[in-house]
Simulated assay, not measured.
Amino acid sequence: MADNLTPSESAVLIVLMAEAREISNPELQERYQITLTGTSRTKLNNLGYVRSVKVGRAYAHVLDDKGWDRVHQGLNFDSPRARALGAALTALHDNLRERVLPHGAYRRFAEMFSRTAEPPAPGDDLEARIRKLYGSLAPQPGAWVKHTAVRRRLSEVPEEALDEAFHLLSQAEDVEMMPESNQKTLTEEDRRNAVRAGGQDTHLMAIGAR
């Protein structure tokens, strides 16, 4: 990859993947003896891999959409000062991507590490998977989440099937969908992923608001 991630930056992505939530530098220090600061924070923010916000006097970090995509690709853990640890991380990460995900109930790391109550069963339908993904992305029930953010995590599902599942969801009593109020912020991907509901193209969904 052309992003030239250092072993430390790659390790931070793995930690944020495993946590699958917003976590502050003080908590990172307490739990893992690491922090994300300075040039590495700026680099990961600019690449779109990590979103960082100031909470009090410290920064808190969460893996962003591009970060979730990035952890599905090879990462650099080759540190001359810790070759055994780097080899262990590489082996674990590669086997999760190449052996565990293709044969398990989960299709994406975002699903695997989601903090929703229970994992998807092999027979779960697509609507159930969308609901679980929404739960992993929304800070609380009823929060607005982009259709695009959910669909990116279901990239292996045919578009026609996703379109139908979102259409059915739009009719559920506990689901609301609305257009993006600032249309100028919409990307081409957002427009492609719009769901026709209530006679208008919607770009955001909320579950559990009613």
Rank of each mutant, 00 (worst) to 15 (best):
D3Y: 04
D3P: 06
T6C: 00
T6P: 01
P7R: 05
E9L: 11
E9C: 07
V12A: 14
L16R: 01
L16S: 03
M17R: 13
A18D: 07
E19C: 11
E19R: 14
R21Q: 15
E22W: 14
E22Y: 10
P26C: 08
E27C: 01
E27G: 01
L28G: 04
Q29T: 15
Q29I: 15
E30H: 10
R31F: 11
T35V: 14
L36S: 06
T37K: 15
T39H: 12
R41G: 07
T42I: 09
L44F: 05
L44E: 01
N46Y: 02
G48M: 03
Y49W: 02
V53H: 14
V53D: 15
K54P: 11
K54H: 10
K54R: 13
R57A: 15
A58M: 06
Y59T: 03
H61K: 05
V62E: 15
V62C: 13
L63E: 01
D65F: 05
K66N: 14
K66F: 13
W68T: 04
V71C: 05
H72F: 09
G74S: 15
L75F: 09
N76E: 02
F77S: 00
P80R: 03
P80G: 08
A82M: 12
R83Y: 10
L85C: 09
L85D: 11
A87V: 04
A87G: 14
A91Y: 09
H93F: 04
H93A: 07
D94A: 14
N95P: 02
L96Y: 03
L96G: 01
R99M: 10
R99V: 10
V100M: 10
L101A: 03
P102C: 00
P102T: 06
H103G: 00
Y106H: 14
R107K: 12
R108F: 05
F109I: 01
A110F: 04
P120Q: 08
P120V: 01
P120T: 06
P120K: 07
D124Y: 08
D124R: 13
D125H: 08
E127P: 03
K132V: 02
K132S: 15
L133H: 01
Y134F: 04
S136G: 14
L137H: 01
A138V: 02
P139E: 09
G142H: 08
K146D: 00
K146Q: 11
H147C: 12
T148Y: 07
A149F: 10
R151H: 05
R151T: 03
R153H: 11
S155A: 15
E156I: 13
V157F: 05
P158K: 04
E160I: 13
A161W: 07
D163R: 15
Q171C: 12
Q171W: 10
E173N: 12
D174Y: 09
P179E: 05
E180P: 01
Q183T: 12
T185K: 06
L186D: 01
T187L: 09
E188Y: 04
E189T: 14
E189P: 06
D190F: 07
R192C: 08
A197F: 04
G198R: 07
Q200I: 13
T202S: 02
T202P: 02
H203T: 00
R210C: 07
